[in-house]
Design a protein around this nucleic acid. Sequence first.
DNA 1: ACTAATTTTTAGATATGTCTAAAAATTAGT
DNA 2: ACTAATTTTTAGACATATCTAAAAATTAGT
Lengths: 230, 230
Amino acid sequence: MFLSLCRMKNELSQTEENYLKAIFSISLSRNKAVSTNAIAEKLKTKASSVTDMIKKLSEKSLVDYQKYQGVLLTEKGKKIAIRIVRKHRLWEVFLVKYLNFSWDEVHDVAEQLEHVKSTKLTQELDCYLDYPTHDPHGDPIPDENGKIAHHSDTMLSSIKEQESCIVMGVKDSSPSFLKYLDNANIKLGSVVCVLEKIEFDDSMHIEIGEKNLSISHQISKNLFVKKTQS
Amino acid sequence: MFLSLCRMKNELSQTEENYLKAIFSISLSRNKAVSTNAIAEKLKTKASSVTDMIKKLSEKSLVDYQKYQGVLLTEKGKKIAIRIVRKHRLWEVFLVKYLNFSWDEVHDVAEQLEHVKSTKLTQELDCYLDYPTHDPHGDPIPDENGKIAHHSDTMLSSIKEQESCIVMGVKDSSPSFLKYLDNANIKLGSVVCVLEKIEFDDSMHIEIGEKNLSISHQISKNLFVKKTQS
DNA sequence: ACTAATTTTTAGATATGTCTAAAAATTAGT
DNA sequence: ACTAATTTTTAGACATATCTAAAAATTAGT
């Protein structure tokens, strides 16, 4: 018996899945071929390891690859990547909704849960959670067919003085940022009014839930918002 | 960097965890050192692979091992094995209770979920499920400190004519057996009355929920029961 | 107690995924 | 356009976990 179980069942290893996810995630921002270095940085590994893995994924027709030219996911690869993102975000919803996790705690556990293989599990979880469209950070959850509701792309930093908006998601979901938001009582759905913008450092004064607050540019440029229709 | 992530965090690989679980499971029935062959058979691998892994586990003080003499779990190893069993069974309860899995479908998925590492996850899941004491097959779920409620050890086959009992668990939890039970409407908690025992083939006629049924010895010797106090 | 059968271990390979260091190709600066 | 800097790939190792085949130890039969 020379084939591993993964190969026999046509299943991917966790590592392979993580590479696909990383390539998918990077190609969302820059829309051209993804560089070896970018993948290495994302996965905290070395470029040489990435080259090796890319060759393997290329042989499985999950990525299009030409030496020195970076990679792009094939349709097949993209489908798998989206399926993993879907599972990751569904589990995040589950952890927050039912298991008392806060939004800064879910990531590491969801990173593990996303690799559990069972179509029924994903479907039933989706149903149990009542088909959520967004995860606890406001990121959209792909549906069963891989369709992704597109994200708000307006940042709080671009809102003008005296305008109001609703917090739709976070661009940075590092625990430190999320804890800051918790502390400032900024949540998904919070209504924010921009009172004053300081030209000097791009910070702004905002009103949120009866309270006034000063936030740095670093904060405002990491919050996705939707302008309120007035 | 020569140490893998697992080693740095003092975490075990899924394979190592599966070996501990297998050794634990085997040592429950025969209470002496567990043979290399028995482990190999349980894990569907080769004796030589088992020897290699045992050496590794022995170096980590998870098993006591002497060449040619089989292995026993150390306290530390046993603790870890029990923790994995606990996680496995909690997930089984979750899958049946909330995700519409039947008792013959849960095993493979739970085998994957049991390796997810997060103390908080296990604790919160336990709480969410309302601290169940038994999994869907009637097997006891170890508590947070590793205490295991001991299992009923009476088999239906040992019940005398005209005596009644309650189904407490299954010894064999293969899908085919579980599907048979579903079909015959035999569940955990079902009240069974033994009407007649056939000496020739050890089969028996039973009454279950207003209906009469004939079951083979193969069935009756795989059902754990508790005699009803009358 | 001595052979025979079985079990267990060792030795040497294979496959996956990683790394370092050096070579090759690409991109950027003048 | 030509060097210099950067990026990417190759080559060779290493660690984990597996296997086959052969050797060693144990157990069982007479």
